[in-house]
Amino acid sequence: MHTLFTRFTAFYGSNPLHLLGTIAAWALAGYVVTLLGAQALWNTKVWWQSIAVWFLAAIIAHDLVLFPLYALADRSVTSALAAVRGRRKGPSPRVSPLNYVRVPTLATGLSLLLFFPGIIRQGQSSYFAATGQNQQPFFGRWLLLVGTLYGVSALAYAARLAFCGRRGEATAAS
């Protein structure tokens, strides 16, 4: 029995439970498709308004668009700040501004990602039919939020610099 288990594991690459569980999961997904009907996955008139397209596009949009974009942006900011620091004459600031840029930028990106339909006024007619209101205020509100995020971050950075500066002077004096 043990050798059978070992031989299966060597052949398959993992234990039998792994195979059984994965088959069960795929069978469940297959059952979902039979209930939904394969034709419901695909919209013959407008191809991009298909469930199948959105399902796969969601993966591509995250893994091959959103992630590379934010990773590239982060690496650009990091290396740009490092370059500025390297070229500057005299003492460089004791505190890197990197995270004081990152945090409000991430919060801005997150709020846009979550609430973009209102911000860019997408779906105006269904919004109006449901609520009796329009989406007019959201863009302005979002700008205020973004301003607050960066403003607070700037204040925090200034305070941190002042704090470290004073501590530095105190160290130099002593």
């Binding site: 308004q49 959105w54 339909p117 779906g123």
Partner: peptide
């Protein structure tokens, strides 16, 4: 994605 769009009455997905 569909949940986010639905709570904001944005039915761009069509289905």
């Amino acid at each position: 994605a569909t949940g986010l769009l639905n709570i904001q009455y944005d039915y761009i997905f069509g289905f």
